[in-house]
Every structure is written in C-alpha cells, then in structure tokens.
Amino acid sequence: MKKLLTVVLSLVLVASLLAGCGTDNNSTGNNSSFNLNNEIVVVSREEGSGTRGAFVELTGVEAKDDNGNTVDRTYEEAIVYNGTNQVLTAVAGNEYAIGYISTGSLNNTVRPLKIDGVEPTTENIKNGSYKIARPFNIATKGDVSEITQDFIDFIMSKEGQEIVSDSFIAVDDNPSPYAGSKPSGKVIVAGSTSVTPVMEKLREAYLEINPNAEIEIHSTGSSAGMQAAITGTADIGMASRDLKDSEKAELDYLAIAIDGIAVINNPTNTIDDLALEQVTKIFTGEIIKWSDIK
C-alpha cells in the first residue's frame, strides 16, 4: 500500500515537473513580441581586452575627467564577458542585449548595427565611412635590414594580404605576388597582442617560402612594441591602433590590416541603426531603454 502511494506520488511529481517545463517553453514563445520599453542589456568585454580598449577609445566611452585622469566610463551594470564567443552567445540569447565584437567574428545569430546609417561592411570600413575601426600598424625605424624589408614585402604581397584577410580586412585589394630575394637573417617583431596571432600566421607562411629566415615574435602590447622599435630592440613594432604623434616622429609606419568593431544586437530587435553618439550614451549608461533612442 505504502509502496503504491510512493510510486503514485513520484509519478505526480515528475508529471508536474514536465508540465512546468512545458509552460515555460510556451512563455518563451510568447515573449518574442519585442517591447521597446524594456531596459537595454549592455554587454561588454573585460578590462585589458584589446577590443574593449579600442571600442571605448573610438566611441568616446573613455574620456578625461576634470582632473585630467583617463576614465573608462563603461556602464556599471554592463554584463562583462572575457571572450568574443560569449558575447555572441549572450547577445543571440537576449532580445534586449547590445554588445560589440570584431567584424571578423560576426555570424548570423546577431545583427551588426549601422552606425550613423553606415553598415560595417568591408568596403565601408576600408573607405573610412564606418567609424568604429582601427588599423593594425607595423612600424620600423630608419633604414631596415634586407631580411626585414623582405618580410614586410611579403606581408604586403598577395600571399600575405590573403592571410590577413582570413580574420581581418586587407588594406590592399590588388597586391602583386611576392617576388622577394629570400635573404637569410633574423627579424625581431614586437608589439600588440591583437596583431600577434595574424603575425604568427604570416611568419609560418613566410618561413615556408624562405626557410633561411628566422623570425621572433614578442607579444608585449602596442605601446611596448613601438618603444622597442624606437630603441632598436625590435626590427618591426606592431600596434593595434594609430600611432601617437611622438611615435610618428620617430618611426616609419604602415597599416597591414584594418579591424572593424561591429556593434551588435539581437535580430528580433526593431532598431538597426544608431548614431555614434547614441552608442556612447548606451555604453556609458546615459540611455537606459530602447525606447529612449530616437
């Protein structure tokens, strides 16, 4: 008798659990009617991330306060993730979310927003009409060695720019194929952690063509890379930003790629165009609701 009761009770429990799940599914279905009066769910990257650094700088989220201190004003309530994929999943899973990722990582689960009416296409980023983009620069000081010049020629060649365009936007549409003399020697490259991955791929491809070369890459950060190029401890410096005036005075520089940063939201959202100023206001918490965007 007791056993029977237990069995019946547990059956009821399981059934109610399943029923609970069922209603949940329904409620998710009903929620697809998008409501502009909801709060914007701001998704950001962690402090120190190159993407965040470039984004806050380009949008003016980072600003100087009255005392001349540089302050990252990213909204306190912003959800923080430490990877592009997590930002993608979060924005794809939340109708009211907004985030930012490198244009190279976009997929169709999220919608890249137009900024001031301009879509973040390769073309728009290249001609400068899409505002949130940063160049990846390499810099050298004075006369360079034969091997350094040959490696730079390779980066700017058809083969090199093809590697670049796998993850970023190439700067040159019709580069000529590599026709270097394949000299032997050693090149030290130092700088940005964001440029390092693509530089490593370039090294790999270059060493296949020119096995006599030796290329050393130090991932130290843009500023340290420029400093190393100035002092001569590195032959080539890498920077994931424009060079500062003090650096421009000392170095010859060249953009090898452009990385656009796409501001993304959920495809069910009715808003697909923001002014740059509105992006700044959303990420600093001045605009709280989607309906506040006009």
Binding site: E47, G48, V80, Y81, N82, G221
Partner: peptide, 12 residues
Amino acid sequence: IVMEMGYAADLH
C-alpha cells in the same frame, strides 16, 4: 582573476 589575467600587465 580568470577574466582579466589574459591581458593584464604590471600592477594589474
């Protein structure tokens, strides 16, 4: 720790 270790330098 896990979020910021990747890019952190110096005092950070």
